[in-house]
Simulated scan of single mutants.
Amino acid sequence: MTPVGFSYLSGWDHEDHTALLGMVKLECQRIAHLPEGAPLGGASTLPYGRQMKDWQNVCAAASAMQGSSATQARQFFESWFQPYLINQQAFYTGYYDPEVSASLTQGGEYQIPVYGRPKDLLRGRNEKGELEYGHWVNSVFRPYDDRATIDGGSLQGKGLEIAWLKSPVDLLFLQTQGSGRLRLPDGQQVFLGYDGRNGQPYVPIGRVLVQRRLMKTEDVDAQSIRDWLARNPDQAMSVLEANPSYVFFRRTQRTADEGPTGAFGLPLTPQRSLAVDKRFVGYGMPVWVDISGKDAQGRFVTWSRMTFAQDTGSDIRGAGRGDLFLGWGDRAAKIAGDMKNYGRMMVLVPLPAPGVGDVPQDGTVAGASAAGAGQTSR
């Protein structure tokens, strides 16, 4: 990562700095309630921001700003944060809060269970400090049952069913997004939140379809996958079970206007919350997203704005990898399904005192070309 000036953030002048300050205040409240010494994540090469103590002065300054003007809010960021450019091409996808038809009782067309977390499913950290899920088998910690085994009935009779769906494809999309809204026959909504996974490797269904020569790489998106599975019910389960990963849920309390809770512990905000790889970008850090290129329909897209690292995902791996939360509803689902864009990513690192960062005054990048530093080919 290379330090850059705020002038390197395309569109920074036109951001809603007051709204951004409000999000920092919410994050500071969350950080204050974390266990003392809890690591926030982030690359080891970053000078600050990986520990709670690195945010103390920033949060105190944010709390002191009551009724601040847009200019003062902007000055807060430029004083208390140092932007760092990730020196490789960033890749962005999108996710959303899906809604599917469901019933709280099994019957009729509702035959696919949504499972809560099994009591013997545990989580811990491996020697690298990474979170792992599994259970003890003959004194050895192993991944839990894979998707095919669970589909075969290994969890039946344990009272784990939260609800019943019409299709295993609906379940897949709930699990891929990590949260969801169940629309019951009487019109009521039940909200689901992520409650762990089985510890098996995640294999994208699109990759399975391409490897089996059932779909071309350029044709893969959320809608095309759903359409293929609907057209080929005789092959659908074989394709679905090629992904051994399985996500468990819990019922949550929220309103229809609220997003699900992300891994950082805050409700996700549409177009402001970003899922990241915690090994490189720590929770809470502001992240400047800069996209320029063609979308899935070949249309030219430019999109630049501040987001916040508030979530993670099993397929979100690597520096410069971001998954943008887009909200709920048909429009969010459509945008999320189409979003596969390259660009740049800048991480704003909190500083222990105002102005101590290495900020190039001319806005150029130290030690890298300003025109696409570290870009790689598709």
Results as ranks from 00 to 15, higher is better:
V276Y: 07
L268S: 03
E258R: 11
D257K: 09
R279Q: 14
Y283P: 00
V281N: 07
Y283N: 01
L274Q: 03
P270Y: 04
L266D: 00
L274C: 08
T269V: 15
F264P: 02
V276M: 11
A275V: 07
V276R: 05
D257Y: 05
G282N: 07
Y283D: 01
P260D: 12
R251Q: 15
Q271T: 14
T261H: 06
D277W: 05
P260N: 13
T252E: 15
G265D: 06
Q253L: 14
P270W: 02
T252M: 13
P270A: 13
L266K: 02
E258Q: 15
T255M: 01
R279L: 14
R272Y: 12
R272T: 11
E258L: 03
V281I: 15
E258N: 04
L268F: 07
G262P: 07
F280I: 00
T255K: 13
R272H: 15
A275H: 03
P260F: 13
F264A: 15
L266P: 07
F264M: 14
L268Y: 06
R254N: 05
V276I: 15
T255Q: 11
A275G: 06
T269D: 12
A263V: 03
E258Y: 01
A256L: 13
A263G: 01
P267A: 12
G265K: 11
L266M: 14
G282E: 04
V281R: 08
L268V: 04
R272P: 04
G282K: 00
K278S: 02
A263D: 08
V276P: 05
R251H: 00
P267S: 04
G265I: 09
V276L: 10
R254T: 10
Y283G: 08
V276K: 04
P260G: 09
G282F: 06
R251W: 02
A256H: 05
G262C: 05
Y283E: 01
R251M: 13
R251V: 14
T261V: 15
G282C: 05
T269F: 04
T255R: 11
R279N: 15
Y283A: 00
Q271L: 13
R272L: 13
G265C: 14
A263F: 02
G259C: 11
T255P: 03
D257S: 15
V281M: 10
Q253R: 13
V281W: 06
V276Q: 06
R251A: 10
T261K: 14
E258M: 13
D257Q: 14
A275F: 12
T261F: 12
S273R: 06
D257P: 00
G262W: 04
Q253H: 10
E258S: 13
L268Q: 13
F280S: 08
S273P: 03
A263N: 08
L266I: 08
R279H: 09
T255G: 15
A263P: 00
G262H: 09
P270T: 10
P270I: 08
L266W: 04
G262K: 06
T269Y: 04
L268E: 10
V276G: 06
